[in-house]
Design a protein around this nucleic acid. Structure first.
Lengths: 193, 193
DNA sequence: TTTGTTTCTGAACGGGCGTTCTTTTATTCT
DNA sequence: AGAATAAAAGAACGCCCGTTCAGAAACAAA
């Protein structure tokens, strides 16, 4: 038996990526076998190679598309630096909350990338950090922020925000909106003069 | 040939753990084989099982001893809440900087623990977080801190601080002391009224 | 209905995995 | 010196890995 009724490339391709995303996030890249991805899709392992040249590309493509989408959606914001920073905080928390698997992978599986692929991903991540750093620098120029080194502050803020997706649960004590409000306040306080 | 001249259990045991620590941090638990650990120690793979019942225990013991040492060294601090918080920030940054491999493992390899082992590690981590939360709660009681939810603030601060060890390099632009100073200021600002 | 193409199966490849076990050697004790 | 013990070597166990490939089944075009 080969080729189950009704199946097409346009359906299976995304399902392969979705299964890989879920399993990589759950167990880690190295612990997930191509066979387990195939099983999740409901296909034999050989069929996966119609959709990816190899396992490494599967990981890389997931990371790259996540970061490219992140960059495409992250605007530079409007208003003064404080407004723009508040907007960035809300955007980051909400965007990452909606894509916990992709976030997890993008932060945890960097060491499983080949050197060339790592450079690409690192470049994208750096571009995202630059969006925040530009806001912080504008605030310093305005005189409304009082941070000594904008690069450090950028990393501190991003680490703080990204941490949310490691513990926040919809079923928990607080709504995402509560969390967002408190983080906005903490971040704005952290960088003020 | 068996048993190289001059070797003893008290020497090899720690070397096994050190090799595992380094390799787990470098490549991830799942990607490191018992054979590669043995090679790093300079021994055949079978000899490792004189020092650990299995690979999982090796990971668990590394995490547990790291967290137990962390708890043993983290004091509750002295003075008012702001002083104690500043002390916590400095301690966390310095302690984690001195043990980057252990920190990395303790945060990245949680999902490779068995359920029972995970509960133990999670309990230890929680006790460490409680040290910080108690300081924050004291500050709120004093009226010097203005955070709505101490649990959220605890996680935010720890995520921020732990992030340092992912990017800080001795060879970089800033000294650890510079970083420490700026983080102390950012954290104290973040929680103030 | 035939032909061609796409998508999948199923088997196979060489190799690495964690772990166990027997045997050999270095050291310590008597 | 000889016996006992500790520590390591080396081989073997069954199993799973990523990847390849020939062939079969479903679909599309004629």
């Amino acid at each position: 038996m080969a080729r189950t009724a009704g199946s097409h490339s346009e359906v299976t391709g995304p399902r392969v990526r979705a299964a890989a995303l879920r399993l990589f996030a759950q167990s880690g890249y190295a612990a997930v076998s191509m066979r387990s991805i195939a099983a999740e899709v409901g296909v034999q392992v050989g069929a996966l190679y119609n959709y990816t040249p190899d396992k490494q590309s599967l990981l890389f493509d997931l990371m790259r598309s996540h970061l490219e989408d992140l960059l495409a959606r992250a605007g530079t914001g409007e208003g003064d630096a404080a407004d723009r920073l508040a907007g960035f905080v809300s955007f980051h928390i909400r965007y990452h909350h909606d894509r916990q698997d992709a976030v997890f992978i993008a932060y945890m599986e960097l060491r499983n990338l080949s050197e060339a692929n790592f450079q690409v991903i690192e470049g994208l991540r750096r571009r995202y950090e630059d969006l925040l750093e530009e806001i912080l620098a504008a605030g310093v120029a305005e005189g409304s922020f009082g941070i000594a080194d904008t690069r450090i502050a950028t990393r501190a803020v991003i680490a703080m925000l990204t941490g949310v997706s490691t513990w926040f649960r919809e079923s928990g004590r607080l709504t995402l909106s509560d969390v967002e409000t408190q983080y906005r306040k903490m971040v704005l306080n952290a960088v003020r003069v």
